[in-house]
Design a binder for these strands. Structure first.
Lengths: 332, 332
DNA sequence: CTGTTAGCGCTTTCAT
DNA sequence: ATGAAAGCGCTAACAG
């Protein structure tokens, strides 16, 4: 039963010939089996096996206007914050026969625009952005393209199309409120420089009611940058009592640096992160953080895109998934 | 609130008409500018702007047999080990106009086969696997497809096509050799259950010259699993002196659990990881590990695929990038 | 340098 | 339930 080594690619035409049916019947047997007779279906199926046929989705997509691809855009793959979202998105899409094409913007609006143009060229059936679309020209182009777009990990009154996320301002406010309830006065912020992290800082400052010492570190955040940020903050504010970090990764660095300096946590210094990373509950001390449903965002984004592909109107184009402050040992 | 939605999509035909040239001239002006006159090129360019034309790569790819897409296959996006490779791969490809389509196998050969079939359907110009192709049927299918394939993060005498990585057996052996040189007798292994991690364990055991207590944890590895693994090992081997971990994430968990139990590192317990994660040099104590050039693997894989797309034969279809043991505080 | 002629492999009409 | 025709939007060939 060794299959013939076919140098020439096997097309549907070959399958049809092998099955003794017309091209279009073979096509239907594969993509719409309910509409052909049981016998024909079986014959075609057998011909597929015999020839080793693999469909050409490029050709199908050209005619049917469905590429079965969805573009997923992130600042960078190394921003681990978005991985659970991407993973859930990819899994949910794959279950329906859709594949994810990846794009990286490097937090640069120009690159974002370029990436989106390239993506549109590939006729994806949907586009999922982590974060809002920055460039106004890109927004315009996306609207014109008619492609379903879901912006995620943020909220907007006027999304390009749909948005699922939460308010970063409120997150910052919630952490500040928590700090205030603890009576901590000498507080600082260790944050990445991206717009969402800066918005959380803004919310924090607003609720605190005054400016606070801040260390801004470049993306992507890392344990090492967390250490450096704490060092910077302690210089600015020697008696620092609590730090609000823009990620758990940064928070873990703050933890390490604090321990290295002999500071006890939380007695000498309280630390709060963001994102509820997989390690945060298991470090010693465990990290107080803001939990966000990353996989939920990805799954919901997939559902919204797929519904739109089926021609359904979204019940809700703007979805606020909220967040939850998780109190752990680093502040308790 | 609705922008002027162009209902009909702008095609190259429209651009050509607007520029007053033939369809094919417009095509050339965009994809092969050197071959048309400067004046024509400018006219077409202007028509592109005026019409808001975005090329349809699906259509172009169908005819030209170049989809400008490369498939990247990982066990799961959450396996952070492969992220630097994926990121570098995507970046290197994007620089040449190629995009990455993502596939996840969940460490399952059946899913691997399914994912690869789906990918082949999309006519990618190359396929990059993290790890070797497991399923023999998938191997066969890939060979038949004629698509350039690079397997990574491992080595093989008989790759499907090309391979760039290193020997996991040798990694295990190197760590064991290091442990032996330190005179540690009561040693253990904390490892993920995937085939590459198990191969490193094999290499470790072979060089040690005897079986060693082992805790196997499910993928993906995490700090929490590292803690659990150390607990398990300490039960199996109460006087444990050194642990070889299959990832730095696991090692960081072992560190935390050891500290929680009042064990001093490295005096009471030495710990070695694998992968040289970004945090490993900055924890306290810093983690001894095996460094692998993840981005290098991705960049090289991209280069090999792109060279093949240009019709070049690869100078070396099998590339051993090696590894490097990095001694840090957790064993020194 | 530019244009004409043919398709790429498949799926949508429309017919039977 | 099946088939024939007609392209999807673009580019490789060959002309001119």
């Amino acid at each position: 039963m060794n299959a013939p080594i076919s140098l020439k690619t096997v097309t549907l035409h070959d399958v049809a010939k092998a099955a003794g049916v017309s091209l279009i019947t073979a096509s239907r047997a594969l993509s719409n089996p309910g509409v052909v007779s049981e016998k024909t279906r079986a014959r075609v199926q057998q011909a597929v096996e015999a020839t080793g046929y693999i469909p050409n989705l490029l050709a199908g997509g050209l005619k049917s206007k469905r590429s079965l691809m969805v573009a997923g855009i992130v600042p960078a793959l190394s921003v681990s914050q978005f991985l659970p979202t991407l993973e859930a998105l990819s899994t949910a899409l794959a279950a329906e026969g859709y594949q994810l094409i990846l794009g990286q913007t490097a937090y640069d609006p120009d690159r974002e625009e370029a990436v989106l143009n390239t993506m549109i060229s590939r006729q994806p059936d949907g586009i999922v952005m982590t974060g809002l679309v920055q460039s106004p020209r890109a927004q315009e182009r996306l609207r014109r393209s008619g492609i379903p777009v879901v912006e995620t990990w943020d909220l907007s009154d006027r999304p390009v199309d749909m948005v699922v996320g939460f308010s970063h301002l409120k997150v910052g406010g919630a952490v500040a409120g928590y700090f205030l309830s603890k009576g901590w006065q000498k507080v600082g912020v260790a944050t990445g420089g991206d717009s969402r992290a800066m918005q959380r800082r803004e919310g924090f400052v607003a609720t605190m009611g005054r400016e606070v010492p801040t260390a801004v570190v470049p993306a992507p955040s890392s344990l090492a940058l967390g250490r450096r940020a704490l060092a910077e903050l302690l210089e600015k504010e020697p008696g620092l009592k609590a730090v609000c970090c823009s990620s758990d990764t940064l928070a873990s660095g703050v933890l390490v640096e604090a321990l290295a300096r002999g500071l006890r946590i939380p007695q000498d210094l309280a630390v709060c992160g963001f994102g509820d990373a997989d390690f945060s509950a298991h470090t010693v001390p465990s990290i107080t953080t803001v939990h966000v449903d990353g996989p939920g965002i990805g799954t919901l984004a997939a559902r919204m895109i797929l519904a739109r592909c089926r021609g359904e109107r979204p019940a809700q184009p703007i979805v606020d998934l909220g967040f939850r402050l998780v109190e752990r040992a680093s502040t308790a």
